Simulated assay, not measured.
Amino acid sequence: MHKVLLSSAIFLVLATSVLAAKPEGKPTVYKTVGDRELTLYITKPADWKKTDSRPAIVFFHGGGWVGGAPGQFTEHSKHLAEHGMVCVQVEYRLLDRKSDDPPVTCTEDALDAMKWVRSHAKELGIDPDRIATGGGSAGGHLAAYLGTVDQGKQDVSTKPNAMVLFNPVYDNGPGGWGTSRVKDRYKEFSPAHNISADDPPAIVFLGSKDNLIPVATAERFQEAMKKAGVDSELRVYEGQGHGFFNHGKDKNRWYNETVAEMDKFLTSLGWISADSK
């Protein structure tokens, strides 16, 4: 089991982080654990003012919960900043590749990062009711986790208002990705098993040949979201594998296509205008 877990994790790291850029934007410490400071990187529009009330998105990088680093969504952040959004890329603690521990620290950090962003909305010039989460692969899991898994009553909500998910490993139940880590605790972590009517609208991007997330898994997620009364869009790209959307791959063909669809989704929410920068 450890060999299978390790090989799967290594593939996820390679698929999601090999083309990752350096994080762009102002580094800010959002949390300290022991002697380690965890940082997020904030990209703002050129005409940003502290008195603004802009939409925002919080990005989580992929890497199987064991690898990767902030920077995977640098180009997405720069693009959306040009459309008027404040963008955040989050550093979170990674799991030991040799262990089979569940992603408790990853989800804890995601929750704390989201709480920090929303509680600092005024100084960031963002609207606390227009904060999306975004991410790829294991980062897509964290983005979807925040949108679906009930955290109970909180002083500051960690639930996003929209989700932008790139090949997210969001089904961690039996037969899904990550089961070897979450085991019988999958209902604590699996977005697909926590869908409810108060979840935010979502768009999901997936390659038809993704060897970690079958198209059927994404279709079931979309169907469950719609059954709960939540808007959920799914875009499947023929012949593409895991991590196909990353900037720099295939001369940016899939990056450009998925970004265009992301823009349409955010435009449909009234957050940006896809025709202007």
Rank of each mutant, 00 (worst) to 15 (best):
D129R: 15
H141L: 05
P128R: 04
G173D: 07
D150Q: 07
Y145K: 00
D155N: 14
D150F: 11
L165V: 10
G140M: 02
L165T: 02
Q151L: 14
V169R: 00
G134W: 13
D184F: 03
K187C: 07
A138M: 05
K159H: 04
L146Q: 03
S137W: 02
N161G: 14
A143P: 02
Q151D: 14
M163C: 05
I131A: 03
A162F: 08
G152T: 13
V169M: 05
V164N: 10
Q151P: 15
N172S: 12
L146D: 00
I131P: 02
T179H: 13
Y186D: 04
I131N: 10
G175N: 03
D150L: 10
G175I: 00
H141V: 00
P168K: 13
G135R: 02
A132Q: 11
V182H: 00
S137F: 01
V182E: 00
E188H: 07
V149F: 00
W177M: 10
V164H: 05
G173W: 02
G176I: 01
G178T: 08
W177L: 12
H141P: 01
P160I: 09
H141A: 01
G147E: 00
S157C: 09
R181A: 07
H141Y: 03
Q154L: 08
L165C: 06
S137C: 11
N161D: 13
G139V: 05
I131S: 03
F166K: 05
H141R: 11
L142P: 00
T148K: 02
A144R: 00
T158I: 10
G139E: 08
S137M: 07
D150A: 09
M163R: 02
A138N: 10
K153T: 15
W177R: 06
L146G: 02
G176K: 01
V164F: 11
V156Q: 11
S157P: 06
S180E: 13
K153Q: 12
R181K: 14
T158P: 06
P168V: 03
I131V: 07
A138S: 15
G173I: 13
P128N: 05
A143K: 01
A143G: 09
R185D: 07
G135D: 06
A132E: 05
P128W: 12
G135S: 12
G152V: 11
P168W: 04
G178M: 07
Y186N: 06
T148Q: 07
N167G: 15
R185W: 07
D184Y: 09
E188V: 04
G134P: 03
I131R: 08
R181F: 06
N172M: 15
D155T: 15
V182D: 00
S137K: 02
Y186H: 08
T133V: 11
K183E: 05
L142A: 02
K183H: 12
W177S: 12
V149G: 00
R185Q: 15
G178Y: 04
T148C: 11
D171F: 06
E188R: 04
Y170F: 10
A132T: 09
T179L: 08
G139P: 03
Y145E: 01
V164I: 15
G175S: 13
D150T: 07
G135M: 15
G147P: 01
D184M: 10
T158H: 04
P160E: 09
T133K: 03
N167R: 10
K153D: 05
A162W: 04
A138Q: 09
D129M: 15
N161K: 14
G135K: 06
P174M: 11
Y145S: 01
A162G: 10
G139N: 04
R130L: 14
T133R: 04
T148Y: 03
T179N: 08
K183Q: 07
N167Y: 14
